[in-house]
Design a protein around this nucleic acid. Structure first.
Length: 346
DNA sequence: AACTCGGGGGA
DNA sequence: TCCCCAGAGTT
């Protein structure tokens, strides 16, 4: 039996029923693939249901406001996916009359669609023979064939793509692609897979050589940096506060937050009050500051740790740019802010 | 080629 | 604590 045959036989028995497996409509496949980038199915599934429900067609998505899309995306992370989703939807509607590209090459032109996603959509929707390479594929192939090339190197990317392209079932690329990913997710898991029940265990390199824990090889990332965030939660007599939209390039782009003072280290109340003296919005006003969380909240991201303090700033008058506290929940915010809002309960 | 971009979950 | 997740865009 060929690699492909063993794999797809396994798939026909073990595959999970998932909503995006009931359709080949490129809008739904695209939506699911973007949501599932770097995201486990368990986490992404409810977001997929929400998006399909709120935006049943690409036209609905294209005509939405970015903030509305970000709000629905809130908590899922990698928010550029949501912004690019909106951008690409507008492109499809305005430049392509609402019709998705029908091949790998043209799918790549959609913002947020890279090599993996273009191959996934092209194969699933149009039966194009284009192999997907995601984290699952790297793991399955590196273990089965004993490939030690680092998966997060350009050499590795080319090597695994070429191998997957050789192995793919030319008659049914859609099933092969989904099968290899499902196999990686369920059977050939990152940690302690049960190789005794694996259909490949008689010929798998890693299992035979006891190298499961060594493969795949990945170059370690640099150490995480620390940042100190001080969020200013203003409260006025009229029950208003201030939310600002994050500008520029960095993290949480276009999401909202309480006014932020970043510092080199954790600030004391005295030090924070000094900072507030320089704040334009508080010029000539009297205010009272208290620290909401006695212990720093450490929000851990893959590449930085955010040591966070929320400061309640009660002022005696109204403020420029204020919004009613009852509206705070309408804005898309990072989960760090969202958790505070929920806990504080205004 | 290296860096940046989130948040949840498993062991 | 460390690693992984249906990766992509920027520098």
């Amino acid at each position: 039996m060929t690699f492909s045959k063993i794999l797809t036989d396994w798939y026909s028995v073990n595959k999970r029923q998932l909503p995006w497996r009931q359709t080949t409509n490129p809008y739904y496949i695209w939506l699911s693939e973007i949501i599932l980038q770097q995201t486990q199915i368990k986490q992404g599934l409810p977001y997929y249901e929400d998006f399909v429900s709120v935006f049943p067609t690409v036209f609905d998505l294209a005509h939405a406001n970015e903030a509305e899309i970000l709000k629905l995306w809130q908590g899922l992370g990698y928010y550029s996916r949501a912004r690019n989703l909106h951008f690409a939807a507008k492109y499809v509607v305005e430049d392509l009359n609402g019709v998705f590209p029908t091949n790998y090459k043209d799918l790549l032109k959609l913002k947020g669609v890279g090599d993996y996603t273009a191959s996934a959509i092209a194969s699933i929707c149009y039966n194009e023979v284009s192999a997907v390479v995601d984290g699952n594929v790297y793991r399955v192939l590196s273990r089965y064939f004993g490939i030690y090339t680092p998966i997060n190197s350009s050499k590795g990317a080319k090597e695994f793509k070429a191998l997957a392209q050789e192995l793919i079932d030319k008659k049914d690329p859609a099933t092969f692609n989904q099968a290899v990913m499902e196999f990686g997710a369920i059977q050939c898991k990152p940690k302690s897979p049960d190789c005794t029940v694996c259909p490949f265990n008689s010929s798998c390199f890693a299992y035979g050589k006891d190298e499961i824990t060594e493969l795949p090889v990945k170059i370690k990332a640099a150490k995480v940096s620390k940042k100190y965030f001080n969020f200013l939660v203003f409260l006025t007599p009229d029950h208003t506060t201030i939310l600002e939209q994050r500008q520029g390039k960095g993290i949480w782009q276009n999401l909202y937050q309480f006014p932020l003072i970043e510092s080199k280290k954790a600030l004391t109340s005295k030090e924070l009050e000094q900072e507030l003296e320089n704040l334009e919005v508080l010029k000539g006003k009297t205010f009272d500051v208290s620290l909401y969380n006695k212990n720093e909240i450490v929000h851990k991201l893959s590449h930085q740790h955010l040591y966070t303090q929320f400061w309640i700033v009660e002022v005696d008058t109204n403020l420029k740019g204020e919004i009613p506290v009852s509206k705070v929940e309408d804005f898309p915010v990072p989960i760090l802010i969202g958790n505070f809002i929920e806990d504080f309960n205004f």
